[in-house]
Computed example of a mutant assay.
Amino acid sequence: MRTGRFEGHVAFITGAARGQGRNHAVRLAAEGASIIAVDICGQIASVPYEMASEDDLRETVNLVEALGGKIYATVADVRDRAVLEGALNEGMARFGVPSIVLANAGISPQRATEPDPQQVFLDTIATNLVGVWNTISIVAPMMISRGDGGAIVITSSAQGLIGRGGDGSGAASAYTASKHGVVGLMRSFSAWLAPHSIRVNTVHPTGVHTAMVEHAEMMEWVAADPERGTTMSNPMPVGMVDVSDITEAVLYLVGESGRYVTGVTLPVDAGFTSK
């Protein structure tokens, strides 16, 4: 059932084929927004788990359209600025300039044994940090020209506020560095865009029930260090949170409820960053 809280809004969402990105797209569409959705829909060689597919992206489309929502979805790698810009332009030709941007695409390639630590470090930084810069730096000037404000939310992590669980590996180091890095981007962009009534914030989940986290290689990485399971646990009695918990935070930030909230780091972490 569709409601109208975001009627007339256009949302640009990266990493929308499954997980948090899909859930954000479906919820925003259910509340009236038109969706421009992109995802790499392919494998990065250094990532040990199966990444999203074109079938996954089509399922996001199906779920949005089943609600009566409007969506333009296409394959685009956030590391490829030209392709990403082309995808956004195609979406804008259908729906207009986004007022909501969710820079959500990311990878978390931790594994017990890394064949090439440097490559996984570079791939993680390129996706999680450069990809976020690409996304926002492309769309922000268009939002300024649109002249009606807007909201941008970057998906960081609890690891973007602390460094717990690091082991010097390429993936763990790069993941934490990239998720800290997007906080810097958020603060820079929020200062730039605030005079244009465009708000920029980060959301910082603990572990979320998604394919990016719930895979054998991640479990082996946690099990490789006897203390890591305790170190990476939440103070609240919950192992992981649900995608809907993150979506609720995002809707608060991009909605009228967050109209004066900008430049903040919002944890949804079951106390992880407080322990």
Rank of each mutant, 00 (worst) to 15 (best):
G207D: 13
G207H: 11
G207L: 13
G207Y: 13
H209N: 12
H209A: 14
H209M: 12
H209E: 14
T210P: 11
T210L: 06
T210K: 06
T210E: 10
A211T: 11
A211P: 07
A211R: 15
A211S: 12
A211N: 13
M212W: 01
M212K: 04
M212A: 11
M212Y: 01
M212S: 06
M212H: 00
V213Y: 15
V213I: 15
E214M: 13
E214C: 08
E214G: 10
E214D: 15
H215Y: 10
H215G: 10
A216D: 14
A216H: 13
A216E: 15
A216Q: 15
E217V: 04
E217I: 07
E217D: 13
M218Q: 12
M218W: 11
M218E: 10
M218N: 15
M219E: 15
M219C: 00
M219T: 14
E220M: 06
E220G: 06
E220H: 03
E220A: 15
E220L: 11
W221K: 09
W221P: 08
W221D: 03
W221S: 01
V222A: 07
A223P: 04
A223D: 15
A224D: 02
A224T: 00
A224W: 02
D225F: 07
D225N: 14
D225Y: 04
D225I: 09
D225S: 09
D225Q: 02
D225V: 05
P226N: 07
P226Y: 07
P226E: 10
P226H: 04
E227S: 12
E227H: 07
E227M: 11
E227D: 14
R228N: 03
R228H: 01
R228Q: 03
R228T: 01
R228M: 05
G229C: 01
G229I: 09
G229P: 06
G229R: 14
G229K: 13
T230F: 08
T230R: 13
T231P: 00
T231I: 14
T231M: 08
T231D: 08
M232E: 10
M232W: 00
M232H: 02
M232G: 00
S233A: 14
S233D: 08
N234T: 09
N234D: 05
N234W: 04
N234Q: 04
N234R: 01
N234V: 05
P235R: 02
P235D: 04
P235H: 03
P235L: 00
M236L: 15
M236N: 08
M236C: 06
M236R: 07
M236T: 10
P237T: 08
P237S: 08
P237W: 02
P237A: 09
V238T: 12
V238Q: 12
V238G: 04
G239Q: 11
G239A: 13
G239I: 09
G239P: 05
G239F: 09
G239K: 11
M240G: 03
M240F: 06
M240V: 06
M240D: 00
M240I: 04
M240C: 05
